[in-house]
Write a protein that binds this DNA or RNA. Structure first.
Lengths: 329, 329
DNA sequence: CAACGATGTGTAATCGATTACACATCTTCT
DNA sequence: AGAAGATGTGTAATCGATTACACATCGTTG
């Protein structure tokens, strides 16, 4: 590999001058400039980032800690983050916790040792250990999707969105509304969305029937199973609508209903959250909430950038959303 | 930031000993070992990767060059790659060319300057400049999805898969088969799949009607428009089946057909390639080809790893696929 | 014309790790 | 007992960049 020393020698200048040329700071004569330029293009020389980072403490890399890589939400968010990082010439280092909370800490450390300039955390479980770890980290960290005490975060309006969706159902005169959620260990998706469901039911004086509530694990299949459980557990009294906390589970739920000969939305209405691409194309098309994930990615990227620059940024923000009314309700 | 020197001092040993402890090579007494361990856990010290890489020329990072980040195929592939890299403690640096061929070269250089230990290229256009660049690169490069001369690559069996699909259509007695493709500048998706279409048509003695062929840009909407063009260009003679080179475009195409009151597959059959998740859940469910993207990601990851270790690896491979027969044909 | 700022360049220290080499001590074997 | 090997540790060079500092030259200004 050619180094800055090689270039300097070939161009007949000192490496200081080459460095100045590369970083366009300090003075470099037209003459030297041309010779260096020439040599560099001939050799295809690229400065070593390791050496540079060692000296400057800047790597030009930010880390993203994802719960799961191959998910529609993740890829939209990453795409948004990438969009703003690209403008700043920053690269993205991806890590994937596979929903294992210990890994979040592990990756936080790893990103520290790699001297990431910043970290974006899409966490699912925020424990005390995690918080301690983040506090001790000499690197700016921001969080998307869940509120993490002490650091800037951008969250989705889970409570409001879920309430709105429930209101929509209630507005269509549904009284018996079922619920398909996920484990409460996930604060945003598992806990808040369920709370909104229960609150709206109670506020409306509607009965929250335990047998109309089921839990899935985000997968389409689990939505199918959850719906099956709801329908079969109490044949005599089934809900007239079911609110699912994700589009994927809603899709599975609808599959089961269609299979069993129920008409959606006439017999049972189904609603989801997340606006997966497929939601528009399944039959009936799914009523859902768009969280603008890509824009949220851009926004959290900007927040990280601002935090890295030491700007006093608005610490806690909530991202916009919109209800998409389609045919399943 | 604490450095190895700080640790050494606090533990009362030389930094050499600390380094030996960290890398578990050379001898370190039980006593020293314990003191060092103690100090490290107290301080939360993590060795600087930049310094380490500068010395060892290994970064533990591989780069992936993607045409587009937020795509189902990409995220599946990345997930597969991640799976094998994780086992080796390797991290992934993501770059996204946004389908711009110049960026492929730019990112190749960038990954070189970041001293990536290896590169996985999911290219779309392989020009001569790109090839030259790769040859000159002192880093192992492998390609997925398109064949790149001179480097190990894993390709999808585009020709065979497309032929099989066409055979399926022909076997169902379709004589007038349309085609929705993409620009031929994309060798695999644009060129090879179309060639398979034309070859099968000709081999079967079927007429290739230009007005039954249209071109999209991978998007669902473009599939819709392409189908519209096919139907409206020649009302008197429309195809009885249409082969689409991607599931997304097939989905758009079906949307148009359903909107216009055509029955799928009775009036017009539709087939796609790629097995998007949604394909199973739209109505009618889409007949398509599964390319096992995640496994392909694992495979290309293994190939890169092997190449990095200098193993004499089987240079050109083709990944398996399977036809999924569903209701749209 | 003396002084000063702008321009252009080089010397050498530094960042935080790894590692070749040297040296000391302790075991073990013949 | 003496040699050979195993064990344990430290010294110092090195990786490839950046940058403070020093110095030289040149044009301009009062």
């Amino acid at each position: 590999m050619t180094t800055i020393n090689d270039i300097a020698q070939m161009a007949g200048v000192s490496r200081t001058t080459v460095s100045r040329f590369l970083n366009s700071n300090g003075y470099v004569s037209q003459e030297a400039r041309e010779r260096i330029e020439q040599i560099i293009s001939e050799t295809g020389y690229m400065p070593s980032q390791s050496a540079k980072s060692l000296r400057t403490k800047k790597t030009g890399v930010i880390g993203i800690i994802l719960p799961k890589i191959s998910t529609e939400t993740s890829s939209r968010v990453v795409s948004g983050i990438n969009k703003v990082m690209k403008k700043k010439g920053m690269q993205i280092l991806l890590t994937d916790t596979e929903l294992d909370p210990d890994k979040e800490i592990e990756y936080l450390r790893l990103l520290k040792s790699r001297q990431a300039d910043g970290i974006i955390l899409l966490a699912t479980n925020i424990g005390e250990r995690l918080q301690k770890e983040i506090e001790a980290l000499p690197i700016p960290v921001v969080a998307l999707g869940q509120e993490v005490p002490g650091i800037p975060s951008l969250t989705y309006a889970d409570y409001d969105a879920s309430s709105d969706m429930m209101q929509l159902l209630v507005g269509k005169d549904h009284k018996k509304i079922g619920f398909i959620g996920v484990s409460k260990t996930d604060p945003a998706v598992g806990s808040i969305r369920q709370k909104a469901y229960i609150d709206v039911m109670e506020r409306q004086g509607l009965e929250v029937n335990e047998s109309w509530m089921a839990e899935g694990d985000f997968s389409i299949e689990s939505g199918y199973e959850a719906m099956k459980q709801i329908i079969t557990s109490n044949r005599s009294e089934i809900p007239s609508a079911v609110f699912c906390v994700t589009d994927r589970m809603a899709t599975g739920a609808m599959e089961y209903l269609k299979e069993q000969g129920f008409r959606v939305p006439e017999d049972i209405a189904v609603a989801g959250i997340g606006d997966a691409v497929m939601s528009k194309y399944i039959t009936p098309s799914l009523t859902t909430v768009d969280y603008y994930n890509e824009e949220a990615g851009e926004a959290i990227g900007e927040m990280l950038l601002a935090t890295m620059e030491g700007k006093n940024y608005n610490k806690k923000m909530m991202h916009k959303y919109r209800l998409i009314k389609r045919d399943s309700v």
